[in-house]
Amino acid sequence: MPKMVLLAEYVSLAGNDLSEYTRKAEVSVEVEDKDVTTYASLGWKELLGGLKSGELGLEFLQDVAASEIDAIMWPLLGTVVPFEVRLDNAAVGTSNPEYSGSVLINGWNPIEGSVGDEASVSVGYPTSGAVARATA
């Protein structure tokens, strides 16, 4: 059984490579289930897939210096921007697929944490439109 340790994920938002700030990235997609059960279903629930949706979850190490992560993310607030995520920062390929699409930057937490914590920011952005999986 193949195994993998994530050591060098690639994360890009709005054309900015944010890999150096990112310590966690998750792309999740789902499909609504629509109940189409009738009496002809003989007591078994029948489902069809409905609308698809997704989310890009990220955890960044915060840096508020000029041109760093806070300065990159703040102007994006309220906009829909492209994203790209790969398990490795190597080229896209069959062993390193890229997931891409667009997300709504619907929030930013510039200050988060307790005494003695590292300065980090956790966000979850909903996708807007299709999420694609590319291998070339």
Rank of each mutant, 00 (worst) to 15 (best):
F83M: 09
E55T: 15
W74Q: 13
A136V: 06
D70Q: 09
A65R: 15
L48F: 01
V80Y: 03
S12Q: 15
E30F: 12
L6D: 06
L6F: 10
G54P: 05
S114Y: 10
E9M: 13
A130H: 07
Q62V: 07
D17E: 04
K45Y: 01
L76T: 11
N89S: 15
G50V: 04
T127D: 02
V123N: 05
V103I: 13
K34T: 10
E68Y: 04
K3V: 09
F60W: 09
A134W: 00
I105G: 02
L58F: 06
G124L: 04
V121F: 00
Y125T: 03
V36A: 02
D70S: 11
G54E: 04
K3T: 13
V81Q: 15
G78T: 09
A40L: 11
P126A: 08
L47S: 12
V27R: 02
D17C: 04
T135K: 11
S28E: 11
W44P: 00
A40C: 00
G101Y: 03
P126R: 07
D63K: 02
N89P: 02
G50C: 07
L76K: 12
L6T: 12
R133M: 13
D63W: 03
I69S: 05
G116W: 03
E55R: 15
V11N: 08
S41D: 05
M73I: 14
V80S: 10
G15F: 03
L42H: 15
A134M: 08
E32C: 02
D117I: 05
S95T: 13
S12D: 14
M73K: 10
S41F: 00
N16S: 11
G101F: 03
M1N: 09
L77H: 09
L51V: 13
E46P: 00
V64G: 11
D35K: 05
K3F: 06
W44T: 15
G78F: 08
V121K: 04
A119K: 11
N96L: 05
V36R: 03
V27Q: 01
I69V: 15
F60Q: 01
A66S: 13
A66W: 06
T37P: 03
V29M: 13
V80R: 09
D88I: 01
P75L: 08
F60A: 02
S114V: 07
Y99D: 01
A14R: 10
T94I: 12
N96E: 06
L87G: 13
G116L: 08
D70T: 10
N96Y: 04
L104K: 12
Y39C: 06
T22A: 15
A71C: 07
Y99A: 04
E118W: 12
L76C: 09
Q62L: 10
I105H: 04
S128E: 14
S100I: 03
V131M: 09
L47K: 14
D88M: 10
S102T: 13
D117V: 07
P126I: 07
L18H: 06
D33K: 14
M1H: 11
V85Q: 06
T135S: 11
E112D: 11
F60R: 01
S102I: 00
K34C: 03
G124E: 10
A66C: 04
E59N: 07
V131G: 05
V27H: 02
L18W: 04
L87C: 02
E112N: 11
